[in-house]
Simulated assay, not measured.
Amino acid sequence: MQAYQHYKAEDFLTDDLFIAWVYNRDAAAAAFWSDWMAQAHPNRAEALLAKDILEALNIPDAAVTEAALADETGQIIRRIRQPTHQKMPVLRRVWYVAAAVVLLLGVSWFVWRIPQKPLALMALLPTAQSGDGVVEQANRTSKPVRVTLPDGSTVRLQPNSRIQHVAGFGQQVRAVVLTGEAFFEVVPNPKVPFLVYARDVVTRVVGTSFTVKAYDENPQVTVAVRTGRVTVYSRKELEQHRNAAKPEVTGVVLTPNQQVVFNAKEEVFRKELVENPVFIAKDAASVSFDFDDVPLAEVFRRIEETYEIDIVYNEQLLQKCTLTASLTGLSLYEQLRLISKSLEGSYEVTDGKVLILATGCGE
Results as ranks from 00 to 15, higher is better:
Ile309Arg: 02
Pro295Val: 04
Gln316Cys: 03
Arg301Gln: 13
Leu296Trp: 00
Asp292Trp: 09
Thr322Asp: 03
Asn314Cys: 06
Ala284Ile: 02
Arg301Thr: 11
Asp293Ser: 14
Thr322Pro: 01
Asp310Phe: 02
Lys320Glu: 12
Glu315Asn: 12
Ala284Asp: 01
Ser326Pro: 01
Leu296Ala: 10
Glu298Val: 08
Val294Tyr: 12
Ser286Gln: 15
Gln319Tyr: 04
Ala284Phe: 02
Glu308His: 13
Ser326Lys: 03
Thr324Glu: 03
Asp283Ala: 09
Tyr313Met: 09
Lys320Gln: 13
Val312Tyr: 10
Tyr307Ser: 07
Tyr307Ala: 06
Leu317Asp: 15
Glu304Ile: 05
Ala284Tyr: 12
Asn314Lys: 14
Leu327Ala: 02
Leu318Lys: 05
Val312Ser: 07
Thr328Asp: 09
Ile303Met: 10
Arg302Ser: 07
Val312Trp: 09
Phe300Met: 08
Asp283Tyr: 05
Arg301Leu: 11
Asp292Ile: 08
Glu298Gln: 15
Leu317His: 11
Ile311Asn: 08
Leu317Arg: 15
Thr306Cys: 11
Leu318Trp: 01
Asn314Phe: 04
Asp310Pro: 03
Asp283Arg: 12
Gln319Glu: 14
Glu304Leu: 01
Arg301Cys: 05
Ala325Trp: 00
Cys321Arg: 00
Val312Ile: 11
Ser326Glu: 08
Glu308Ile: 00
Val287Asp: 00
Asp283Thr: 05
Phe300Gln: 09
Ala284Gln: 12
Ile309Thr: 12
Tyr307Phe: 14
Val312His: 08
Ser326Ile: 00
Leu323Cys: 01
Ala325Gly: 02
Ser286Gly: 03
Ile303Phe: 11
Leu317Lys: 15
Ile303Gly: 12
Thr328Pro: 00
Val287Cys: 01
Glu315Pro: 04
Thr306Ala: 13
Ala284His: 10
Phe291Glu: 03
Phe289Tyr: 12
Leu327Pro: 01
Thr322Asn: 06
Leu327Val: 00
Val287Lys: 14
Glu308Leu: 06
Glu298Pro: 04
Ile303Glu: 12
Phe300Arg: 04
Thr324Met: 04
Arg301Ala: 14
Thr324Ile: 06
Glu308Met: 06
Val312Arg: 11
